[in-house]
C-alpha cells in the first residue's frame, strides 16, 4: 500500500462567526495575493480568511437569512454566496463590490459551483428540481437542466419535493454535471447538449454533497448522504462501485484531495473523517468540532490544507501530508 495521507490539526478559530457556519470553500490565489478561505454562516455574513493564520480578511454583509453556500471562480477574482432567501450575490473578492445579484424564482438556491473553465455558474435549484446555469460574462440565466419528472397521472406534491435538488458538481472536464436530491437520487447531465443522461441509484435519503474525482479517474463521483454512507459511482457507467460506512449520522459534506488519493467528509456526528478508498475505510477521524460539520474543503493550489466548518461556529484548519 502506498503511504496514506494523514491529517494534523493546525489551527482552530472559535466563534469565527456569531452563528453556525454552514459553508466553506477555498478562493484560488491571484498574482497579488495567496488563496483565501471563504465561509458563510447563519449569522448572514460571508467572511474571508488568510490561508495559514486564519486571520479575518474581511466580513461581507448584505445577505438576509442564513448563508447556505459559497463558491469561488477558478480565477480567484470573483466569488458567489447564496442565502436561505434564495438570492445569489456575486462579488469581487478583493473589493467586495457586488457584480451581480441572481435569482430565478420560485427556485431556491442551495449548492453552487463554477465550472472548471469559469464560464458558467451552476446552482442547485431546490424545489424547481433543476440546475440553473448562469453565464459568468453576462450573468444571464442560460439554461435550466431539469430532472425529468416521474411519469404519472399528475405530479403530486410528494414526488416533487423528493426531487428537491440540494447539491451540484461539475466533472473535471466540464462536460458533465451531477446533482443530488432529497430522495437520494443523483442525476447526471450532459452539459453541452443540456440533456439529462441518467440517475445514479443507491441512496434513499438526501444527498447533500457531491464531488467528482480529479483526472485520471474523472468518471468517479463521490456522494455524501443522510444515510451515513459515502457512495462511489461510475458516473458514466451508471454503476455503484463502492460504499463506505462509519459515520454515526448524516454525511453533510465530501471533498476529494487534489491528487485524488483521499476523501474527506464532514458529518452530523461532529467528526471529520479521512478515507482511503482502496481500503474502503476511514483511516482517520478528527473530533475537534463539538457540533455538526457542515463543510470540508481541500485547498487546490498546493500547501496541503483541509478546512472544516461547523455548527459550533468554529473553523478548523488541518495540514495533510
Amino acid at each position: 500500500m502506498s503511504k496514506s495521507m494523514k491529517l494534523a490539526g493546525l489551527k482552530s478559530v472559535e466563534n469565527a462567526h456569531d452563528e453556525s457556519v454552514w459553508a466553506a470553500t477555498w478562493v484560488p490565489g491571484t498574482t497579488t495575493r495567496p488563496s483565501l478561505l471563504l465561509t458563510g454562516s447563519l449569522d448572514e455574513t460571508v467572511k474571508l480568511w488568510s490561508p495559514d493564520e486564519l486571520d479575518l480578511v474581511r466580513t461581507n454583509t448584505g445577505h438576509c437569512l442564513g448563508v447556505v453556500s459559497v463558491a469561488a471562480h477558478p480565477s480567484g477574482v470573483i466569488a458567489a454566496s447564496a442565502s436561505l432567501d434564495s438570492l445569489v450575490r456575486v462579488f469581487d473578492v478583493d473589493t467586495n463590490a457586488t457584480i451581480a445579484t441572481l435569482e430565478a424564482p420560485p427556485s431556491e438556491v442551495w449548492q453552487m459551483q463554477f465550472d472548471p473553465k469559469g464560464t458558467t455558474l451552476a446552482v442547485a435549484g431546490g424545489g424547481s428540481a433543476s440546475i440553473k446555469l448562469w453565464d459568468t460574462a453576462t450573468w444571464r440565466l442560460v439554461a435550466t437542466l431539469s430532472i425529468p419528472r416521474p411519469e404519472g397521472p399528475k405530479p403530486s406534491d410528494k414526488s416533487s419535493s423528493k426531487k428537491f435538488v440540494l447539491s451540484v458538481a461539475w466533472s473535471p472536464d466540464g462536460r458533465r454535471l451531477a446533482c443530488g436530491s432529497m430522495d437520494g437520487t443523483i442525476s447526471v447531465f450532459d452539459v453541452a447538449r443540456a440533456k439529462f443522461l441518467h440517475h445514479l441509484e443507491g441512496h434513499h435519503m438526501p444527498v447533500r454533497s457531491l464531488v467528482f474525482s480529479p483526472e485520471p479517474d474523472s468518471r468517479r463521483l463521490y456522494s455524501a448522504s443522510d444515510d451515513g454512507h459515502v457512495h462511489i459511482y461510475d458516473a458514466e457507467g451508471k454503476a455503484l462501485i463502492g460504499a463506505m460506512s462509519g459515520h454515526a449520522s448524516w454525511v453533510l459534506s465530501v471533498d476529494v484531495s487534489p491528487d485524488g488519493e483521499a476523501l474527506a467528509t464532514g458529518s452530523s456526528d461532529k467528526t471529520v473523517r479521512l478515507w482511503d478508498f482502496k481500503m474502503r475505510a476511514a483511516i482517520q477521524t478528527m473530533s475537534n468540532h463539538t457540533d455538526q460539520v457542515w463543510a470540508v474543503a481541500f485547498r487546490r493550489d498546493g500547501g496541503g490544507r483541509l478546512a472544516s466548518v461547523s455548527d459550533d461556529k468554529s473553523i478548523s484548519l488541518y495540514h495533510c501530508s
Binding site: W22, L42, E108
Partner: peptide, 14 residues
C-alpha cells in the same frame, strides 16, 4: 433562528 436551522436541515419542508 431555530426555524432557519430547521429549513437548513429539511430544505424541502415548506
Amino acid at each position: 433562528k431555530t426555524l432557519l436551522r430547521a429549513i437548513h436541515l429539511a430544505p424541502s419542508n415548506y
